[in-house]
């Protein structure tokens, strides 16, 4: 097995540090590709931006800031509160159930363009029904642990 140790292709991996072997290769690959992307894609793109043909991502685009930020805030609050509430009722899935009802309703309101009474009632029903159904099926029927 060790006969070809002088060959340029031979390699010896120390088990204690083997967890770094492959990541090193990938790091170098990413670095190399990044330089290539920079030269062949980013620089030409920036030139176009300068000439006014293209817009920069994020900065140069119009966006619905209210809905976008609102979504992010709702998601963070939803995920965070889920485990907080769930902690008061260990392993019953109530944390999931209660926060989902609030989350679904608020997110529906956020995404509605015109808030008619009818739409709000539908959203409200949905916000109650969907999590309750999911909870009954998954937590009660299939005994899946929920927060």
């Amino acid at each position: 097995m060790e006969s070809g140790t002088t060959s340029p292709l031979s390699v010896s991996i120390d088990f204690q540090t083997s967890h770094l072997f492959f990541p090193h290769i990938i790091n170098w690959t990413i670095g190399l590709l990044f330089v290539l992307v920079l030269v062949f894609r980013v620089v030409p793109f920036l030139k176009k931006v300068k000439r006014g043909e293209r817009a920069l991502p994020f900065i140069g685009e119009s966006m619905d800031g209210f809905r976008f930020v609102g979504t992010l805030v709702l998601l963070v609050a939803y995920f965070y509160l889920m485990s907080v509430v769930g902690d008061y009722f260990p392993y019953t899935g109530y944390g999931f159930l209660f926060t989902s009802i609030g989350f679904l309703f608020l997110m529906s309101l956020l995404y509605m363009h015109t808030r008619t009474k009818r739409k709000i009632i539908v959203a409200g029903i949905n916000a109650l029904l969907a999590p309750a159904l999911a909870w009954v099926v998954f937590a009660k029927l299939f005994y899946i642990t929920l927060p």
């Binding site: 009632i121 029903i125 109650l128 029904l129 309750a132 159904l133 909870w135 009954v136 009660k140």
Partner: peptide, 11 residues
């Protein structure tokens, strides 16, 4: 609404 409400309570 009524149905949902009762289903929810039942659950």
């Amino acid at each position: 609404f009524g149905l949902v409400g009762s289903a929810f309570m039942a659950s």
